[in-house]
């Protein structure tokens, strides 16, 4: 997206927000249409459940309407929407019993005393093409992401999946930029390790066949 395009989008959005604050219901429809997919996708990735994601999306849309006058424009409107979405999703998750997360540290790379890699690292990056679109691979990837601890997962979803900038993520989560980077790096290391298990097994089976 070009800079001018981004600027225009921002202006349109700001105008819609002003209209909504003035009580314009059509502006509300437009905002809902603009954001419902983003809200649904993020809450679905956090909860992995259609009904829950639907509930959260409804709730967020309603909150946007009811609380629009508390939005003061200190951060971007979209950051505000993401924050409301995260809060609503976490409330929903907490109301349910959840499985304990695995510790991320156990899955980080290990080194010997001299700082060299200890485990055998297989390069499976060339063999993912044919596997990418199988349902099994997708399930493996989703499960791996579901296992991420909450702090790392949210950074990963906003930055790597929603493709927001590091600065934007730090605004949404009220974290420093280095903290965002470090959580994202840990998330990627964790996921790499999880996916390695799957792809290495696949490659070794293929080798035997």
């Amino acid at each position: 997206m070009s800079f001018t395009q981004q600027k225009e989008d921002k202006e349109i959005e700001e105008a819609l927000v002003r209209d909504l604050q003035a009580g314009d219901l059509d502006a509300y429809d437009k905002i809902a249409t603009l954001y419902q997919k983003k809200i649904y996708a993020l809450s679905f990735n956090l909860m992995r459940n259609q009904m829950d994601a639907q509930d959260v999306t409804q709730e967020v849309l309603l909150t946007l309407f009811r609380k629009i006058n508390t939005f003061q424009g200190k951060s971007a409107f979209s950051s505000w929407v993401y924050r409301i979405t995260l809060n609503a999703s976490y409330m929903k998750l907490r109301s349910k019993k959840k499985e304990p997360n695995v510790s991320i540290d156990e899955l980080l790379p290990s080194f010997n005393g001299a700082g060299f890699q200890q485990e055998k690292i297989q390069d499976w990056s060339g063999s993912t093409e044919s596997l990418l679109f199988t349902n099994e691979t997708r399930e493996v990837i989703k499960k791996a992401v579901d296992l991420l601890p909450e702090k790392e997962k949210v950074v990963f979803l906003l930055r790597d999946v929603e493709c927001l900038s590091t600065e934007k993520v730090s605004e949404i989560l009220d974290l420093t930029v280095p903290a965002v980077k470090s959580r994202l790096h840990r998330a990627r290391l964790f996921l790499r390790k999880k996916l390695s298990g799957y792809f290495e097994e696949y490659n070794s089976q293929k080798g035997e066949a």
């Binding site: 297989q122 060339g126 990837i141 790597d160 493709c163 990627r188 996916l195």
Partner: peptide, 15 residues
């Protein structure tokens, strides 16, 4: 290579 692939695979699957 696998670090890069991981990021891309997860994005393609979840977005």
């Amino acid at each position: 290579n696998t670090y890069k692939s991981t990021t891309l695979l997860c994005r393609d699957t979840l977005n």
